[in-house]
Design a protein around this nucleic acid. Sequence first.
DNA 1: ATATAGTGTGTAATTTTTACACTAAGTAAT
DNA 2: ATTACTTAGTGTAAAAATTACACACTATAT
Lengths: 229, 229
Amino acid sequence: MEQILPHLDSVFSIDCVLFGFDGKELKILLIERNEEPFKDWWALPGNIVGPDESLDQSASRILYELTGLRGIFMEQYYAFGDPNRHPQGRVITLAYYALIRLGGDKELRPVSNYAKRANWLPITDLPRLAFDHQKIYDKGLEKIKRRIKHQPIAFELLPEKFTLTQLQHVYELIIGKKLDKRNFRKKILGFGVLKELDEKQKGVSYRAATLYRFDKRKYAKLFGKEISF
Amino acid sequence: MEQILPHLDSVFSIDCVLFGFDGKELKILLIERNEEPFKDWWALPGNIVGPDESLDQSASRILYELTGLRGIFMEQYYAFGDPNRHPQGRVITLAYYALIRLGGDKELRPVSNYAKRANWLPITDLPRLAFDHQKIYDKGLEKIKRRIKHQPIAFELLPEKFTLTQLQHVYELIIGKKLDKRNFRKKILGFGVLKELDEKQKGVSYRAATLYRFDKRKYAKLFGKEISF
DNA sequence: ATATAGTGTGTAATTTTTACACTAAGTAAT
DNA sequence: ATTACTTAGTGTAAAAATTACACACTATAT
């Protein structure tokens, strides 16, 4: 409930964990800060929520400003509001994660002034992060680990047309363990949400794999049924 | 990321969906508003986050002020921040749910001045709610529906000692469908997190059921394994 | 022609899930 | 003490899902 509206000093921001997949590794986008506090540290990209923006809009804007990308899958997952999380005052931050297919590094725009640069860094080898951003990242990874078991979010990290091996690779990276090829295929095809294309992988120096596409319409029909890995 | 700290007009509140179980029904605690906007409407209890409170502390405080209870299981689950959700200005609110065993109505303290009264109302028959509280409630229910399938939260709604039938009842109410008694028992006992007591139910006019207790230590050992209903 | 590297496929054993109905135990009423 | 009533407590067989496991095929590169 909300009654009177006092003028309070709480600042309200959004921080994003942008997960990217380049076909090999899972990476996240970090910026190198150009300002105190934590000048020269790596941090999650984020910003203040504008007065007339919805939260989701604000998250999309932050992502757009950094990458030039629109229409990316993003989800809010937690609010961090410890009174001491920011050395200069109370800042409550909402965490979003996004899932992005990386193809070439053209997605990186010139970054805004508060950062020296932005970089995609593999999650297997992250630097120390500013503020409580390690905690925010950890919780984000945990979230997608759980999500991928029940929702078709893996596709967001892949090009529209992908091979089953690529898909399996994404699952293995996120869940963090190897899966059996035959069982994986049996299961994922069993859900009936993939459309097999008349097209093969190109540019590989071995037998080319069949390409598939995620079929949203078939997925919609599944509604209510549990997907589980 | 957070840079300078501008003085912004955003107000920051917490709203709580307090789920209570009295042995029969699932209820939530609603307050009847005494102030504009939405005077005389039912609303979720909530409040402004204090300047030195953590978010979890703030949620616990709100719950304590309303019910006199401490140590209740609460979890933050979503932030609602549509620019128009509050008619008098921008209010971003964090939603928490809590799970409470109701035993006698002694838990209800005199409520603060912004409310006429507070009442536990069965979720099967809720009034129209103020602001976007219907949406907040809906998302909260959805959340515990998913949660109860993978985490031992049902026990929070029951007395320390409970019968398997009572436990099944809670599952049925939250998940929203009937379960088979034998299969339920087989499965839940199979997890090995219940301790059978040497004690029977009292005060019933039929064969008394065995009482059980949730065993946190055994549960801790399960860590990593999936519980699934 | 041959080496190489990843694709694509089936089955049997095991485990988990589902569906299903009767007897036992305690209380209340007579 | 008999009876009626109400819920507790239990097992099994069939079906479905999961696991473990290995080899032949195909495209390319040399």
